[in-house]
C-alpha cells in the first residue's frame, strides 16, 4: 500500500494568529492576509505568470495528497527540486493527459473521490459554465479543493475565487526574493483585494509585505 507523509514537515517557530486550520503561518504586517487556505470543497482559479507558484503555495497550505493534472504537450515542467522549497514533492502526484477533455475528466474524478486533498488542473482552453459547474459539484461531493490554472481571461463563471498572480521585482530584497503581487479579482463570498506576498522557504510561511512604492493594504471594499 502506498502511504504519503501527512501534511508538511516543519513550520514557523513564531506562528502568527491567522490560518488556524493549516500548519502554515501567514505573517502579516500592517495589512490583512490573503484568504489562504482556499475555501475548501470549492474550485478556484488562478492566472498570470506566477500562477504556478500560487498553486504550489496553496498546495502547501493543504495537508494531504495533491494531484497536479497537466497536458502532456505543455513545455513547462514542474521541477521537484524547486518545489521542495515550498512543499514536499513526495505528496504530489502528476497526471499527464492528452487534451483538455481528459484533464477535466480526471479532475472531476479526483475531486469527487475525496482521496486527494487538493487538485490542480492546468487549463489551456476556455472553460464554459457547464464545465466549471461540474467541477464545483464534484468538489462539493468529495469535499476536495480544486484549483484551475487558466490562461488570462479563460475562466468560468462558476469559479469561487479568481486570482491574478504576477511576480514582482524586489529592489531591496535578497537574491532569493520571491515577491509576488496577488490580486483577488473575483470572490463569490468575500472581499477582493491586492496583496504583496513573499514565500519564506526557511520558515515555510507566507509573508505579506507592503507593496513597493505604494500604500499598503488591501484594495478598498467595493461600495
Amino acid at each position: 500500500m502506498r502511504r504519503f507523509p501527512p501534511g508538511m514537515a516543519g513550520g514557523a517557530h513564531h506562528r502568527p494568529l491567522l490560518c488556524r486550520s493549516c500548519r502554515i503561518g501567514v505573517a502579516w504586517r500592517m495589512t490583512s492576509a490573503p484568504p489562504l487556505p482556499l475555501l475548501p470543497a470549492r474550485v478556484h482559479e488562478a492566472c498570470g505568470a506566477a500562477a504556478m507558484t500560487f498553486a504550489a503555495i496553496a498546495c502547501a497550505c493543504t495537508p494531504g495528497l495533491l494531484l497536479w493534472i497537466r497536458e502532456a504537450w505543455l513545455p513547462e515542467m514542474l521541477n521537484p527540486s524547486g518545489l521542495s522549497g515550498i512543499l514536499d514533492p513526495a505528496r504530489l502526484m502528476l497526471a499527464r493527459t492528452r487534451d483538455q477533455t481528459d484533464t477535466l475528466a480526471v479532475a472531476e474524478e479526483a475531486l469527487r473521490d475525496g482521496a486527494i486533498a487538493f487538485v490542480v488542473a492546468d487549463i489551456t482552453r476556455p472553460l464554459g459554465l457547464r464545465e466549471g459547474r461540474r467541477l464545483q459539484l464534484a468538489a462539493q461531493a468529495g469535499r476536495t479543493t480544486g484549483l484551475c490554472l487558466i490562461p488570462e481571461g479563460m475562466g468560468s463563471n462558476a469559479a469561487e475565487t479568481r486570482w491574478s498572480c504576477q511576480p514582482a521585482f524586489d529592489p531591496k530584497g535578497g537574491a532569493d526574493s520571491t515577491l509576488m503581487r496577488w490580486e483577488l479579482i473575483k470572490n463569490k463570498k468575500g472581499i477582493s483585494g491586492v496583496w504583496h506576498v513573499r514565500w519564506d522557504a526557511q520558515a515555510h510561511r507566507l509573508d505579506v509585505v507592503s507593496p513597493v512604492g505604494s500604500q499598503p493594504g488591501a484594495a478598498p471594499m467595493p461600495e
Partner: peptide, 29 residues
C-alpha cells in the same frame, strides 16, 4: 487505517482506465 489507501488505489485505477496507468506519475530523485 487500511481504508484510505484502498480508496486512493481505486481512484488511481479509475483515472488509469482513462489516461493509462503510466500517465499517473510521481517524482523520484
Amino acid at each position: 487505517d487500511s481504508a484510505a489507501p484502498e480508496q486512493l488505489d481505486n481512484l488511481i485505477t479509475r483515472i488509469g482506465t482513462r489516461i493509462g496507468l503510466e500517465n499517473i506519475l510521481c517524482f523520484q530523485p
